[in-house]
Design a protein around this nucleic acid. Sequence first.
DNA 1: CCAATTTGTTCGAAAAAACTGAATAGTTTT
DNA 2: AAAACTATTCAGTTTTTTCGAACAAATTGG
Lengths: 294, 294
Amino acid sequence: MKLTLDALEVLDAIDKKGSFAAAANALFRVPSTLTYTIQKLEEDLGFVIFRKEGRRSVLTPAGRVLLEEGRSLLLATQAMIDKAHQVDSGWEVRLNIALDTVWDTQQFLPILTEFQQLNTGVEINLLEEVMGGSLEALIEDRADIVLGGPAPNTPIQGLQFKEVIQSQWCFVTANHHPLTQTNLPLTNEMIAPYTSIVIKDSSRHSPIKSHRLMDKQKQIKVASMQQKISLIEAGIGVGFLPKHKIQNKLDEGTLVTLETTEPTAITPQYCSWKSNNKGKAARWFIDRILSEKI
Amino acid sequence: MKLTLDALEVLDAIDKKGSFAAAANALFRVPSTLTYTIQKLEEDLGFVIFRKEGRRSVLTPAGRVLLEEGRSLLLATQAMIDKAHQVDSGWEVRLNIALDTVWDTQQFLPILTEFQQLNTGVEINLLEEVMGGSLEALIEDRADIVLGGPAPNTPIQGLQFKEVIQSQWCFVTANHHPLTQTNLPLTNEMIAPYTSIVIKDSSRHSPIKSHRLMDKQKQIKVASMQQKISLIEAGIGVGFLPKHKIQNKLDEGTLVTLETTEPTAITPQYCSWKSNNKGKAARWFIDRILSEKI
DNA sequence: CCAATTTGTTCGAAAAAACTGAATAGTTTT
DNA sequence: AAAACTATTCAGTTTTTTCGAACAAATTGG
C-alpha cells in the first residue's frame, strides 16, 4: 500500500484552502514540503494528481477521486480510533438494556439520567420485552442487562440474577365497570363473563404461556403492560396488574382493585445479566439498580 | 491523525502470521522493526495494543478493534486506489448503455464481447428502455449511450445522435390468425375488431404517446418489444413490428406480415450520446456502433 | 532435565525519509 | 513595470525508520 493517510490530509488541506501555500500554512509546514509530499504520492501511485493551470494547480480527475474518497477514508479512520479508545477505556461502545414491560420505565429514567452525566460515551439502547422475552433477549445477546421479568425456572449457565422488587398483582377494573357493583370477593365464575386483557409473551422461541389465564374467559391479547392498562381503564376488559404500575391511577380513582377468592400473586421481579460481562457500564447499572431502594 | 496505514498492515500481518517474527519475515523486515512500529503506534494512540502472555504477544480488546476495523480500512483504501487508476487510465469506472426495446439485444452482444476482450476494467450496465424512455435516460444521466429509439423531435442542447439503422415496421399476425384469411390490403376497419398489442412508453415524465394507436381498437399494453412479439405470436393480438426483430420468425412461418392500406412506416433508429462525454469507453462504443454495417 | 530453539525487546549505528529555507521562474494584480 | 503571489528546485538539516547484534524469557525436544 503505497499511500499514507498524511498525504490524504495534505490533499484535503490543499483543496480546502485553495492553494499549496495556504494549506502549508494551515498544516504548520512550508510550501516546498507539500510539493515534496504530492510529488512523492504521484510517484508512488503512478499517476498525476495536480496539473498546473496558470500559476496554480488543479486536480486531475484521478486526483479528485483520491481527494473525495480519501476524505471518507479519513473520517472512517478517525471513527475507528475513537471506537478503539472507547473500548480501551473499559466502557462498552454500546449497552442494550431490556426493560420488561412489568417494570415502570419512569422509575428507570433517573438512573439513566445519572449515567448520562458520567459522560462515558456509551450508547444506550432500551428494548422493551414482555415476560419470558426478556430472558431470551439476554441469552441471545440482544440484551446485556434485563430489568424486571421472572427468574429462569431452571438456572441457566452463565446467567446471574437478583431480586429487585416485589411486584404485587391485583385484580383491576375501570371505576365504571359492572363488576364494581358486585359482592366481593369475586369468584372465577363471576369474572368469567367479562373480557380479560392478556399480555402476549414476546419471546420468539418459548412455548406460549399466557399469564394467569382463566379458561373460558373471552380474551384480548396486547403487546405491552401499558396497552393492558389503557384497555382496562377504558372498561374494555379486566385483568391482573402489578400494583406499583397503576398506583397513580388507583389514587386518581380511574382504576379500582377488587378482592378475589383466587389469591393474588406476589411475583418477585429480577435484574438479570451475564456473569461473564466485564463491561464497566454493565457493572455500573447492575450495582446502581441493586443498591436502589424501591 | 496519528496513525499510518503501514502500521495497520503490520498489525494485520502479525495477526495473520501469528507472531512478530513470522510477520517480519513476510514483510521483509526485521523483528525489532515491528516492535518499534507497534510501540510507536501505541504511544501515538495512547493505549496498549499487545500485552505479553508467555513468550508471545496477544491483542488487547482495543487492539482487536484496530485490527478488525483496520482491515476494512485497508480494503477500502486499495479500492480507492484502483478506482483512481481506472479514472486516470481514461476509461470510465462504469458505463450505462440503454438499449431501446426496438433494438435487437442479440445484435449488440458481439460488440459487447469485443469490448470485454479489451480488458479495460469498465463495468458495463445494460438498461432496457422503450421509445421516449431511452432519450430521457440520457438526459437524466441514467445512461451514457442510447442505442435505438427515435431522435429528439426538438434538438436538445449537448446531445448528439446519428442514424444507425432503418427500421421497417410491418403489420404482423400469427400464422393462424383470422386476418390471414382476409383479402389484402387490410383497411383500418378490417383490423379494428381485433385486439392490438401496444408497447407502453417507459419514459417517466413525457406525455404518454402510444405508437401507431388505432382509435377504436381493443388494446393490451406491454412493457417491451419481446412481450409484444410473444403475444402476437400466440395469436392474442396483432400489431406493427420492426421487420429486423422478427425476421427469424417470419422465416419459420410462425408470424406473417400482411399488407395494409395504411402505409407502413420506415422509422430510422438512432444512436445518441452526450457531446461532452469524453470517456474512452463511451467513445469506443460510439465509434464501433457507427462503423457497424447493419 | 538441560540444551536448543523460538519468542519479543533493547540499543547504537546507519539509512531513508521528511522537512526547511533560500533561490528561482512563472503568472496575476496593481 | 513593479509588486505580490504562485509552485518548484535544491542543498543542507532533522527526524523517522530500519537494521543487526546482543539479550532475556518461555517453550520444545531429545
